[in-house]
């Protein structure tokens, strides 16, 4: 039994691709056979974040158009077992994602993988709708600011109406909230929405908070998912998120301000 997970947000630049890469990598590191699929046709980025951009020969659209088969398009990750990437096409646009074609590819992926992570493009148009259409679970990535929260609200509304589960009146898509680029210090100063504020507005369960981190920029520049930086706060946050996703109980470590070295020294005996 495989699970289709869409990583979506509505707004661009909030960390969908970073989350897709880090989350899929963390699932694979836990031993789950996982594929991460780039739905951002025409603005292909996932291959860069995953560090496999030089190995792309066939892509998702080639498979849809039957110009190549799935095995030719799937790229095996070199660092971790059980992890594959299905890159998007850079030369086409979202209209190439035909319903029939995507259905066929998703069915084939379901036979092979335990988790299928779909990296959605920004927006609410065809590309985003195709990315969410087959989802069993949605990870809603939101930054703690009002425009991002509102766009996420819009996307959550679409998950309840524009998915296969909604059309067939099955159990609704299970929604999880991930708040990324979180800065507890700025929340305390009142400059940033708190995790509670965001949850109040969106009314879906919080899977985890990813702190604003230099490690994320470094990770995307180097093409190494941040999950591999085990000592970084963002890396640890994604490990926590993935652990919670598969049912483990982990405390929320990144909502409160991390104590600096000196305050830790003086306040803890």
């Amino acid at each position: 039994m495989s699970t289709v997970i869409v990583v979506t947000s509505g707004k661009g630049g909030v960390g969908k691709t970073t989350t897709s890469a880090a989350f899929a990598t963390a699932l694979a590191l836990r031993g789950h056979s996982t594929v991460v699929v780039d739905f951002d046709v025409g603005l292909r980025n996932l291959d860069l974040i995953m560090g496999c951009e030089r190995r792309v020969v066939y892509d998702f659209i080639n498979v849809i158009n039957e110009e190549g088969n799935l095995n030719q398009a799937l790229i095996k990750d070199k660092r971790v077992e059980n992890l594959y990437i299905l890159p998007a096409s850079q030369t086409r646009d979202k209209s190439a994602l035909t319903q029939v074609g995507v259905t066929r590819v998703m069915e084939a992926l379901k036979e092979r993988f335990e988790y299928i992570v779909c990296d959605s493009p920004a927006g609410i148009e065809h590309g985003a709708q195709m990315a969410m259409y087959f989802a069993d679970v949605a990870l809603i990535v939101t930054n703690p600011e009002v425009s991002s929260v509102r766009d996420s609200d819009r996307i959550i509304g679409m998950l309840a109406s524009k998915t296969l589960r909604a059309e067939q009146s099955l159990d609704p898509v299970k929604e999880h909230l991930i708040i990324s680029r979180y800065v507890p210090g700025r929340v305390n100063k009142g400059d940033m929405l708190s995790a509670d504020d965001v949850q109040d507005i969106l009314a879906i369960p919080l899977l985890g908070v990813v702190p604003e981190s230099d490690a994320v920029l470094k990770a995307s520049n180097e093409g190494v998912p941040v999950t591999f930086q085990e000592d970084s706060d963002a890396g640890q946050a994604y490990h926590d998120i993935t652990a919670r996703f598969v049912g483990e109980d982990r405390p929320q470590r990144f909502i409160q301000e991390q104590k600096g070295f000196f305050s830790r020294l003086f306040h803890h005996p």
Binding site: I124, R150, D151, D153, R154, I156, G157, M158, A160, I201, A203
Partner: peptide
């Protein structure tokens, strides 16, 4: 029963009873 999300529009001929929230933009 469900929240009315941003961008959604609900129309009722008679009374409309919403047990959850109505988001900004809805």
């Amino acid at each position: 029963q469900q929240p009315v999300r941003s961008g959604q529009q609900l129309v009722a001929e008679g009374d409309l009873i919403i047990l959850s929230m109505v988001s900004p933009g809805a």
